[in-house]
Nucleic acid binder design. Structure first.
Lengths: 130, 130
DNA sequence: GCGTGATTACTCGGATACAAGATGTCCGAGTTTGAGCGG
DNA sequence: CCGCTCAAACTCGGACATCTTGTATCCGAGTAATCACGC
């Protein structure tokens, strides 16, 4: 039970983008250099964020990535769901839908998700300049 | 980001044990038959629960597993930590301890764990006779 | 009938096999910008 | 100076390679209860 590294990269990248001007396109190159990860791998992660409508990409020279929403509208949960997928943490093998254990686990999960949904990334961007 | 099947088996097994007399030893055979999983695999899972002091094992003929605590003292979190380990969901690759993103994730996690710590398994055992 | 040994029914633990998913790389294709070149 | 072409700087996507982890099996060893046998 762990979040993937990809989620970590995605979160940091978005925060990093928030620390730049809204209009400034950032190339994978620069981002990858800054975080010291491979460009191709980071590119794959960013593609997922594009599909989730969190960022936009423009190709060609001077292309790059840019936030597609207001900073205030991007939550931790948005990023996490985009990368990890939105399937539940817990799935009971035995009973389909009526498992009491399952219900408790889902309840616990939604509690956490609620918190991550309310927590916006720009709150971090202000103080953490990494 | 998913809980393993092993956790699911462990939770169901403990609930199942709670639905029997406190003194009744249950062999892996019977448990595995009931849940239709392999004995050897279930045995491995139960061994982890033994190490976490949640159940006790006695070998030899008429051996088997038995709860080592009062029903009221076993929470969901106990089982989960025993199987999944107690390392955090999220680990930031870049900064060691001072990462703001990390802090938020840890906060979210502990929120969920708090819930699972308060939730006891015997609450389920009563109504769910699976 | 009683002690001793063998059998049986269990758990325990290590080694191993297999599958799936996370992580990461390679490369070819498409796209846009801008520079260079010819008329 | 205008327009065309071409190179450069990008993203995109599929196909792969590798590594880790979860899932599962096999087997030999240890252990305790019970049965059988001989004295």
């Amino acid at each position: 039970m762990k979040y993937s590294k990809a989620t970590n990269y995605a979160l940091h990248t978005i925060v990093y983008m928030m620390e730049h001007k809204q209009s400034e396109k950032l190339s994978v190159q620069k981002l990858a250099d800054h975080f010291k990860v491979s460009t191709t791998y980071l590119s794959k992660i960013l593609t997922q964020l594009v599909k989730a409508d969190l960022i936009e990409s423009s190709s060609g020279v001077k292309g790059g990535y840019i936030l597609s929403k207001k900073r205030e509208d991007i939550s931790f949960l948005d990023i996490i769901l985009a990368i990890e997928g939105n399937s539940a943490f817990f799935k009971c093998e035995f009973q389909e839908s009526n498992c009491s254990i399952h219900k408790v686990m889902i309840e616990a999960e939604s509690l956490m998700e609620k918190y991550l949904e309310d927590k916006k990334l720009y709150e971090i961007a202000k103080e953490d300049n990494f």
